[in-house]
Design a protein around this nucleic acid. Structure first.
Lengths: 126, 126
DNA sequence: CAAACATTTGAATAATTGTTCATACATAAC
DNA sequence: GTTATGTATGAACAATTATTCAAATGTTTG
């Protein structure tokens, strides 16, 4: 039943960010390890929430403390803190304590790349 | 309270896929439109499920019908069909009817790019 | 026509999740 | 020390979601 077809084509991003072709090799495989699937799902699930998207987007240029985000998104600092924990657990943000404030910032630039790709897709559906 | 910091840096992918700088312009903005945030969240939420990741990954090279996927993932065709509907609604897969079978394939290559980026992030946390 | 097959759909259930509220903790100011 | 402030946490609730089951649709074959 299973049909065969053209070869895998991975977009430029992987080559740009993946000098030793690690990602490309994984993508070539017929199936993914269960753990990789699980971790990928966790990552995308984490980004797949409006509040967390707003938080990540707000952090794209400057670090912000919980109460900054609380004011910016007009939500309780408890709600923000809960969401920051999810982002922390998935290594999407890092934090720095200063006095009684805790400043959060993006852990790396992957998120912005993912946003860019996501926007590509979202804007295409019109 | 809000601190200022360095300028926005968008990764190569946007430039590669975004000749008219549409994405770059959006990313430069301080905040995203509510609708864009919502759509982005829906997209990532859709990809953020193990079953759907496996489906998308299985479709990366060849189109497959529901029962192919059912056998491959060892799940009921009903469960697969439900998940394919979610993927269809979010324009991640397209389908083609042939006889009594329905063949699904990836709608575009954005998903593979997102996977590549996601893998980057997932593999970095070790 | 009937029977077999592939897929879809709707209802039901269990599981997960986001927010709120109350409370706890840590740090700074008095 | 006490009080105020910023943040984190746990329990509770409502809302969403993935899968199962049963039934329905549509297509092919006899």
């Amino acid at each position: 039943m299973v049909k065969d077809a053209g070869a895998l084509k991975i977009c430029d991003i992987c080559e740009a960010f993946d000098p030793d072709n690690q990602i490309v090799e994984i993508m070539k495989k017929d199936s993914l390890e269960a753990e990789v699937v699980y971790n990928l799902a966790e990552l995308f699930k984490t980004i797949g929430d409006p509040t967390r998207i707003k938080i990540l987007y707000a952090l794209k240029e400057r670090e912000l403390c919980v109460c900054d985000l609380s004011e910016l998104l007009e939500m309780s600092s408890s709600a923000i803190s809960h969401q920051l924990r999810v982002l922390r657990n998935n290594k999407l943000v890092k934090y720095r304590k200063e006095g009684r404030s805790v400043y959060y910032s993006l852990d790396d630039d992957h998120v912005l790349c993912l946003f860019g790709q996501g926007l590509e897709h979202v804007l295409e559906e019109r």
